[in-house]
Amino acid sequence: MATTERTKAAGSRLGVDLGLSDRELLEIYRLIALSRALDERMWTLNRAGKVPFVISGQGHEGAQVAITSGLRHGHDWLVPYYRSVAAVLTFGMTPREILLALYARAPDPSSGGRQMPGHYGGSAYNILSTSSPVATQVLHAVGIAFAAKLRRTDQVALTSLGEGSSNQGDFHEGLNFAGIHRLPVVIMIENNGYAISVPASIECAIEDLAERAAGYAMPGVVVDGADVLACFRAGRAAIERARRGEGPTLIEAKVTRLTGHSSDDQQTKYRAPEEIAAQRARDPLPRFREELLGAGVLDEEADARLGAEVRAAIDDATDWAEAQPDPDPATARRHVYFEPEA
């Protein structure tokens, strides 16, 4: 989403400092709301027995939408992970395409139904294919940025991972190489406090993972993932810094995980009910809605209209994706190696 320095003469003051118009603020809000509704639909379809598995990012949407909003579509790169529903939506994927991955149908642009849901990718969008081993993608984003620097393409790569994954060697090896060569890459840790069931207190030796940036000669920024505009500010600063050739940035967004790790996880086994209830207060969606209502960017009527549009889009995507064919097993041997055009 492009940003402008201009605000409408009759607009609110909310986005002025950030150069965001009311229209642009509403687009961020729409993407957060759309992502949440899509995510909830995925869980509903799982609980209804329609799909075997869901892994997603409820609670992460504010940070994902706001931080990836600064990227240039079709030019920059997004190297996502399995919670990046809102990020891939922001970077161009449609609800239909996301639900194709959920249903694992033949036209699924992420993998043609080969991968588990949540493993997004799309060459049309410069969204690199995702795997399941964690933190491997950090090196891919660094490599994309390395190529961008060598080829002088003016591209920025943005990648995301969880705080648990930031203990992996690939994360550190990637930051080191990015720091040495001042590569145009933004690494975003979405710290929701849990690596499946293990709390951050016994997975990480430090509380603020952004401090790890200091070891790799790059800024480390902590941002409240429930504060959408703070996330936008941090993301845009990092992306612009990368594009100016000043090097990488590590952003740590403190987010909350509103669901279990995946549809196969029962988080009440390791999280107290009070803690789960308290996390609701850190949900970025109602907080941003209140912010927009308070500033007069949004009113109840417009919100209801937007909600109806979102529901219609999700219903359409659900029905459409479900109706698509399964991949043909006769195609399952394809694409092991390059296939020259016939």
Binding site: G143, F146, R151, G174, F177
Partner: peptide
Amino acid sequence: ADRVVDTPLTESMIVGVSIGAAANGI
């Protein structure tokens, strides 16, 4: 030095960065 790159002693990085660079035209 742009095309003949001395890397840190990190083999996973050597291959992982190669994978990413290959996705972006190198």
